[in-house]
């Protein structure tokens, strides 16, 4: 079991969390709304989960659920008034929302610990290991060391969460709701004329995105065991957007691929640490020049599917 390296699993875990964040921005983008508030919603989920588990001893799954729902509710609250806005105006309003939230996190010291943040959040893998050892289980029986077991459980939990999330939204895109989203994105007025209640669907997409961001935030809190307002700045919002821009925002696999690729590249380039972010930037620029729609678009997927059918299995 030597090959099972916690470092690789750690990077894998961040890939999965970022993939969920990528999906969260994809959902709002799929109705043509550009939101930069996802970092803010992520902080709602992360702080809710962190506070519930550190101060009220709520079990981790319940805390994650509560954090996601709270972020979703915040999404509804922000979504309704900002519906009048579109394009860059919506982007700026949601960006403002994220910054307001961050200012609250900094200033509400009695609850959030201010700029210092919340430390010693129970980490999923360690909690599960402690729980399992109480029942006489030892990772040694699987041929694993403790830290391998911890990283592996975190990775598997996140993998399950990501697969369920992607499956749900894949299914959604082929349903009535998904078609309504697509219609709204292509032409809002035409969609309205065709009888689609655009207010309902836009708020739905917006709060689905918010809920997913909160979910990712809660998972983030329970896998790094520390959160602070510095994690949810404007940079995070842009990073999430870049997942969708790089990977492509027309199909759900686009942002998932973008998240995976852009998380792995800086890690893979660790050996040239001084230059790795230069390369990262160069990559984004080249991308914009040669493939502005993102790496993955429906045309590419169709081509894959066709060539896949052509080759014998």
């Amino acid at each position: 079991m030597e090959w099972l390296n916690p470092y690789h699993l750690q990077v894998g875990s961040f890939v999965l969390i970022n993939a969920i964040l990528g999906v969260s921005i994809y959902v709002t983008l799929s109705t043509g709304q550009l939101s930069l508030g996802n970092a803010g919603f992520m902080s709602v989920g992360a702080y809710a989960a962190a506070l519930l588990s550190t101060q009220h001893q709520v079990p981790i799954p319940a805390g994650i659920l509560a954090g996601s729902l709270l972020a979703g509710a915040a999404g509804v609250l922000v979504g309704i008034p900002s519906l009048r806005l579109s394009g860059v105006y919506l982007a700026i309003a949601t960006l403002g929302f994220g910054e307001v939230l961050r200012a609250i996190l900094i200033n509400w010291e009695s609850l959030t610990g201010g700029a210092v943040g919340i430390a010693a959040i129970p980490q999923m893998g360690r909690v599960i290991l402690a729980w399992a050892s109480d029942r006489g289980f030892s990772p040694g029986s699987l041929g694993l060391q403790n830290n391998q077991f911890i990283s592996l459980t975190v990775f598997l939990i996140l993998l399950l969460c990501t697969i369920l999330t992607v499956a749900f939204f894949l299914r959604l895109s082929r349903s009535r709701v998904g078609r309504a989203y697509a219609a709204i994105r292509l032409d809002e007025r035409a969609a309205e004329a065709a009888g689609i209640p655009i207010t309902y669907y836009k708020v739905l997409a917006f709060s689905q995105g918010a809920l997913l961001s909160g979910f990712a935030g809660a998972l983030f809190a329970h896998s790094t065991s520390f959160v602070s307002p510095g994690d949810f700045t404007y940079h995070r919002a842009v990073e999430i957007l870049v997942f969708a821009v790089f990977g492509g925002s027309e199909h759900i696999f686009g942002p998932v691929f973008g998240a995976a690729f852009l998380t792995v590249v800086p890690e893979a380039l660790r050996s040239i640490s001084d230059y790795r972010y230069i390369l990262y930037g160069l990559l984004l620029v080249l991308m914009m020049v040669f493939r502005p729609q993102g790496v993955i678009d429906p045309a590419l997927l169709r081509r894959f599917r066709r060539s896949g059918k052509g080759t014998p299995a």
């Binding site: 470092y7 990077v11 961040f14 830290n147 983030f220 790094t224 602070s228 660790r270």
Partner: peptide, 14 residues
């Protein structure tokens, strides 16, 4: 912090 965590994992395990 997530980069620091990944770096720590790399140093410890790899």
């Amino acid at each position: 912090q997530e980069q620091a965590l990944a770096a720590a994992q790399k140093l410890i395990n790899s």
